Each structure stands twice: as C-alpha cells, then as structure tokens.
Simulated assay, not measured.
Amino acid sequence: MTDSVVEIAGLLQRRTHFELGPVELSIPKGCVTAIIGPNGSGKSSLFRLMLGLSKPDEGSLHLLGERLGERDDASLMTRIGYLPEGAIELDDRLSGEAKAAFVRQWYPGWNEAVYRELLRRFEINPALKLGRMSKGMRRKYDLSLALAHQPELLLLDEPSSGLDPIAWKTMIDVLHRYMERGDRTIVMASHIVEEVRRLADYIVFIVQGRILGIYEKDALLASWQTMYADAGGRDLAWQQMPGYRSGEMSGGTVYKVVTDQAFEAERWLDAQSVTVINRQKLELDEILVQLTEQARGVL
C-alpha cells in the first residue's frame, strides 16, 4: 500500500444495541477504498467518527496525518469533503445558490469554476430550493457541493442513491477525474456492486461492527472462486484445501467447493489427482454473503 490517509487503532464505540469495533484499519492515500457490508453493519457510524460527529469510547483515529479530537479540528475538516447518505432536511428551504454561498465561506479551497462546471455536467438548476429538487437532482447537487473545494479526502456514503443510469455514469466519470491527480483519496460506502468494481482499488468488509479485512480489489476477485471438482467418488478431506470456505456435493462424484485461495487450492487439488471440471469467480456480493455467514457463525 501507499502512505495511509486514514489510520484507525483500537477504536471502539458502544451503543445500547450496537457495538462498533474494536477497529484496526489503515486506508491508503491516492486510492478509492470501498466499505461494504449489510445494512446496520456500522458503515455510517464509522463515517460519523471520521468526521468528529460522534466520539469513540476507546482508540484513536488519524486523518491526513492529524489525530482527530486532539485539538480544534476545524482546519482539518476544510480538507475533507462529505456526502451523507441522506439529504439534510434543514436545508430544504434554501436554494442551491444560498446553500453554496453559506458553505463556500468555510472552505479556503473553494473553486467556483469547478462548482459551476459540476452543476453544468449534472444539469442542476441552483436557483431551485433544495426541498423542491427531485431525489436524484438533490444527490447530484450535494455531490457537487462536496467536490467544489477539491478536498484531499472525500467521504461518500451511498453516493449513487437516487441517480438514474445517465447520472450514475456521469458521477463515475466525475469521480475518476477527481482522482486523476493521484494525491486525493476517496472512502465510500456502497451497495452497488458495479459501482465498487468501477471505482474501488481496495475493499473493506464490515459485518456487525467488525472489520473483516481490507483487500486489493483485483486480487480479491481473482482469489475467490467456486470450483467443481471430480474426485472420482473418493472421500477427501475437503476442509484441508487452502482457502476452503464451504462445500457440498453437486451430483454424482462432483464436489462444489468455494475457496478464497484459488491458485493454492488448484495446486492442492492437482496433488490429490482431482480434476477441476469448471470454475467460476465470485461476485462481490457473493463474497460478502460468505464472509457475513461466517462472521455470524453459520459456516
């Protein structure tokens, strides 16, 4: 990995019906990292902690080289952009222009030309009151606002929520262009598999408040496979296969097995004189299901 832009150590937050952590996580600079997990797994809670909107009970959190909460975080927050999961209803009576006029005074890096270009690309009329905008238009407006000061770190919580296919493609292009300089970082939470495939360099899995790991996306997708192996009726110790996650008979002498170490698993099968008759890479949502079930003690 490159230098880290987010460093979380021993972070623990306790709530009446939910506990986040302890979290150990290092997010690389200059990359897009996607945090994915089931609803209620702690993604939005983690974002709130990174923004200083809530406090941990234990542990530390460093952003852009500074420890959060050690002193006044106002200057640090000017280097961060944030798109929350839902629109802020208190802003509904403001026009887009009025909201921008209020926001720009807090960001020394505000770039009016970038802001106007984003409005043009997303086809937004800033004269409209925010409460009168459609869900998709409001989402595009809020993203434009988050990008207008060209933050070093951009936090996106379900960025494509409410976007139509054309707006979604525009968003993907806008975010790719934002990352072109190489020194900016995006941390995003998303349920959209194609969005993660198109944008992410790294993937963090979170289930029930626990971080299950951070993975380089391409290596992850290459290593998780379903294999259909014919052992000729022999009873093998399948659970000794490298990366074994689950398995079941699939008819006749064929065993269907899921592994997260495809290369090593194939070598093991070859050493057992087992023929692999078919293999399929798992999609991200299928990998998440496997990890979630294991975390919940199903597997």
Score class of each variant (00 low, 15 high):
L221K: 07
T226Y: 01
G251I: 00
L221E: 14
D235L: 11
Y244Q: 09
Q240F: 11
A231W: 03
G251K: 08
T226A: 01
S246W: 00
P242S: 10
D230E: 01
M241T: 12
P242W: 04
R245K: 09
T226F: 03
A229H: 04
S246N: 09
P242H: 00
S223D: 08
A237M: 10
W238Q: 13
Y244L: 10
Y244S: 13
A237L: 09
A231R: 07
A231T: 08
Y244G: 08
A237N: 06
G243D: 06
E248L: 08
T226I: 00
S246M: 11
L236C: 11
Q239F: 08
G232Y: 00
G251W: 00
Q225R: 11
L221W: 02
A237T: 15
R234S: 14
A237W: 06
E248N: 07
L220N: 06
E248A: 14
M227Y: 10
G233I: 07
M227F: 09
W224C: 07
S246L: 04
L221H: 07
A237C: 09
S246H: 02
S246G: 09
M227G: 03
L221S: 09
G251D: 01
D230L: 05
D230I: 10
Y244I: 07
S223Q: 13
S250D: 14
Q240W: 14
P242M: 08
Q239C: 13
A237Y: 13
T226W: 07
L220S: 02
L221R: 10
W238D: 04
L236K: 00
A222L: 13
Q240K: 15
Y228S: 04
L221F: 10
D235Y: 06
G233M: 02
G232D: 03
S246R: 04
A222H: 15
